[in-house]
Nucleic acid binder design. Structure first.
Lengths: 199, 199, 199, 199
DNA sequence: ATTTAAGCGAGACGGTACGTCTCGTCTTGAA
DNA sequence: TTCAAGACGAGACGTACCGTCTCGCTTAAAT
């Protein structure tokens, strides 16, 4: 997105400070790790980053958007699953990668914070779904679409529901359950989905 | 909770006002419906309920606990699933009932708010999990345990993972997806779980 | 001032803290003495006084009103001039007293600050004129009215202009001139006014 | 003012823009008339004038200095009183001219603003007194000095006090009193001063 | 003609204070 | 002892300006 290479209109005035941007994202992530999202404030981010508050308000609509960009800096949002020949192989690959990312402690904290904010602030929810959740959902969907084309799944299979199942399980463990997001869970989900008769 | 039935020692002084308790729960639920959980404050609850703030602080540790009690007043937390003879029947019954409850708009709002708060406030998370989430999880677990006993499921089946799948899907739709929590989804989940070979 | 003794309706809730009121007035006066009115901020007053900002905003409409009340605590606003038998005697008494008050350094600072604010903020100007300037002007006016009754001044004398002359000179020295507000000036003004032929 | 006439070393680089200077002075005066000095900011002046903020900071040490220069553009600061033959005539001429200038609404606003700023900002006070107040005071002083030479006033008369009386009355009406700065006041002051016995 | 040195409009920057909002506690007098 | 009311110390909110610092660009004197 935002490939503004072609005709970036040379606006007047001083350029945005990349150093400040980085300092703000780092400060936000560090503060969440130290004291939790509940205690995160714009003022603390600004102070820790050594910037003015206005520099944050100028570029991000809310502190949750700062956190979302901090996550994007940590996690490649573009999930790519090469064709492994079967649904089972592809799904295992995709889930293990997703789980490995989501269980990294500094990522888990950010995920929880973002989902919480999305449930509280509808305006942010829109941005979070569009820029994060649905992006990854679409990436995972190609695995299922490929399986349907390949014949691994019957054409009538409710792909959206399968996505809800897989992603729901991931998020449920992130949010509500102490059980780990490990390869075992990935394999169990793969077995569940590939083992179901569907019909 | 705190079943003060057995031996309520007759302490001196004025009794707790049940009218105020009800007014507070109602005010909290109404305000969430009107302006969202993000705009909910203790002060607004007190003003709407016509009580003092201290009356809220005296009886609930946080505004999220007020909301949790307001939800308990709306939804019977004790899910009972009579034995329907098969896993398929029991699971369908349980899921349809759960989904019907969770998709009621005034309940959905409260669920979202509580889960959000649980992800932000670890102290509340503990109470929320113990008093709400795990209670319902245990209720659903008997359906699977019964199926294992009955032989509908092999003994080695990872029951906890199945619970995560079912409840995760429920929560994922509540939180992140516009798709409805309807009987179709319940049936698809039942088919997925009962259709899987498991081993 | 505002003797609300007669029928103070017993309002519910906590009473206003007299300790905080005093701390705020003292802090404001001290800060002006230390760093000047230009550097005075509500936040510094609150911090120095050990109160919250809201406690200031709750009781005073602006920081200038705090300063005005701090001045009232230092200077008795009710100027009383006993009848000395002649305009010359009364005027000398009144001016010497006024000048003695106004030249006290901690009072001079507050006077300058209040007049400055009155010229910048029309809403405060109204309060300052009504509650301070005109109150003292009226007190001085009785000296001249008494002189007219007594026959020391002809009935057609423009009393208001004489008040402007006397008070204008006082303020001009406070604001713009290094020359002192001493008894010499008072005597010169008395000589000027009682020596003029008026007619 | 800053007479850089003699040996302006011809420096390289772009010349100061007279258009911007005028636009800034005009914008400052207009904004004061529209919203009062209290709401005047450097940023609003720059925006209204269509200049950058730096262009203001480069040439004026504070916004009050901008206002002072805007006033100089409106009012000739050099008060000249030709010899009219008597103190009475000269003083009447001088006061009527001063009052006529000071009562013009757009001038009154600027005078109030400048005096207020001088009482708040000691650094500006120095410039204001030297470049404005004392300049006019000296111009008026020649009227009294001439009268002493001429014999209209006894040699021992406290000229400085008379200046304080006259200018104090002027400023007091500008600042604190709704009564007009009209010819009547001028005549009353002349009568007061020429009618006093002084001795 | 080219270089060099301001000045210019624009606007981002690190800060500070604003006036408001809400927190959780404390105080008051009535029930 | 609880209740409604409301003041209190605390501190974050989002905004407005401060005075400074780039940024490309326009000028104009010196090369």
């Amino acid at each position: 997105m935002a490939s503004v290479n072609e005709l970036a209109p040379p606006r007047p005035g001083r350029k945005r400070s990349e150093a400040s941007r980085q300092a703000i994202l780092t400060a936000a992530a560090d503060l969440i790790a130290e004291m939790g999202y509940g205690a995160l404030t714009i003022e603390k981010i600004a102070q820790r980053a050594g910037t003015g508050k206005q520099t944050i308000y100028r570029w991000w609509p809310s502190k949750a958007d700062v956190v979302m960009e901090a996550l994007a800096a940590k996690a490649d949002l573009q999930l790519q699953v090469p064709d492994g020949g079967s649904l089972e192989a592809d799904l295992r690959t995709a889930l293990r990668a997703s789980f490995a990312l989501a269980r990294k402690p500094e990522v888990t904290d950010l995920l929880r914070a973002l989902m919480a904010e999305a449930m509280i602030d509808p305006a942010f929810a829109e941005r979070f779904l569009a820029q994060f959740l649905h992006r990854r959902r679409r990436a995972l969907r190609v695995v299922f679409d490929r399986a349907v084309e390949r014949g691994d799944l019957p054409p009538a299979v409710p792909v959206d529901t399968l996505l809800d199942v897989v992603l729901g399980t991931l998020w449920y463990r992130v949010m509500a359950v102490p059980a780990p997001l490990d390869d075992t869970l990935a394999d169990e989900l793969v077995a569940l989905i590939t083992g179901a008769a569907f019909g």
